[in-house]
Computed example of a mutant assay.
Amino acid sequence: MYGIVNKAIQDLVTEKFGEQEWEMVKIRSGIDIDFFLSNEPYDDDITYKLAAAASDVLGISVGMVLQAFGEYWILKTGKEKYGGLMAAGGNSLQSFLINLPVFHNRIMLMYPKLTPPEFKVSHIEKNSIHVHYYSKREGLQEFVRGLLSGLGKFYDTNVSIELLETRDEGSTHEIFKVSW
């Protein structure tokens, strides 16, 4: 993953819990990097270690860490770094989710070494949509749940997110039903 992801984890922990907790996360993770370069790719293992260490230090599940990080990514990093790109994705949650499959194509222009997930949508209805998440990376479904929740907040829309299918139970990918 690119450094911008790890930097956002650092920012989340520092902003919500304090600099001391971030230092404890770094120590617990065994990651000896003083700062992350946003446009540099880093081994995925670093991100996973940071999430596990944050879980230990903060006393919450890894799933909760990933959900919080997903929301933070949208509401903080996304707004600050990609505000124009996000605004171009649509003027409502539904339109953004419908356009989500092409969103990473635009991001890849900025990060050419990116290995992005793939999103597809189905069952488009007035108050719900199914979001299909395909990724080579495992264990990030709660991060995606946080992203979807953050998008609801970004568009000032109350959402409920239900995981319909998961690779943990034999599916080929995750399917979330997002309702509003």
Rank of each mutant, 00 (worst) to 15 (best):
I4M: 07
N6W: 05
K7M: 06
A8C: 12
A8P: 03
Q10M: 14
Q10L: 11
D11K: 14
L12F: 12
L12D: 02
L12E: 04
V13T: 03
V13A: 05
K16V: 03
F17V: 02
F17P: 00
G18S: 09
E19Y: 14
E21K: 11
W22P: 11
E23R: 14
K26T: 11
I27V: 10
R28L: 10
S29A: 10
S29N: 07
I33K: 12
D34Q: 14
D34W: 05
F35S: 15
F36V: 10
L37Q: 09
P41C: 01
Y42E: 06
Y42V: 02
D43F: 09
D44Q: 12
T47D: 08
K49L: 09
A53F: 00
S55N: 02
V57H: 04
V57G: 02
L58M: 01
G59N: 05
S61F: 11
L66N: 06
L66T: 08
Q67N: 12
A68T: 02
A68R: 03
F69L: 14
F69P: 00
G70S: 12
G70E: 07
E71I: 03
Y72H: 10
W73K: 03
W73N: 12
T77V: 13
T77R: 11
T77F: 04
K79P: 03
E80P: 04
K81E: 13
K81Q: 13
M86T: 01
A87W: 09
A88E: 12
G89A: 06
G90K: 06
G90F: 04
N91V: 09
L93A: 07
S95C: 02
F96E: 08
F96P: 03
L97C: 08
L97A: 03
I98N: 05
N99Q: 07
L100D: 00
P101E: 00
F103H: 08
H104E: 14
N105D: 15
R106G: 07
R106N: 13
L109H: 12
M110V: 09
P112W: 06
P112S: 06
P112Q: 07
P112K: 09
P112M: 07
K113L: 12
L114F: 13
P116V: 13
P116G: 15
P116Y: 15
P117Q: 10
K120R: 14
V121R: 00
H123G: 10
E125R: 02
E125L: 00
E125I: 00
K126Q: 12
N127I: 02
S128F: 10
I129M: 08
V131H: 00
H132V: 01
H132I: 00
H132R: 08
H132Y: 01
Y134M: 06
Y134T: 00
K136C: 05
R137Q: 07
R137W: 08
R137G: 01
E138M: 08
E138I: 09
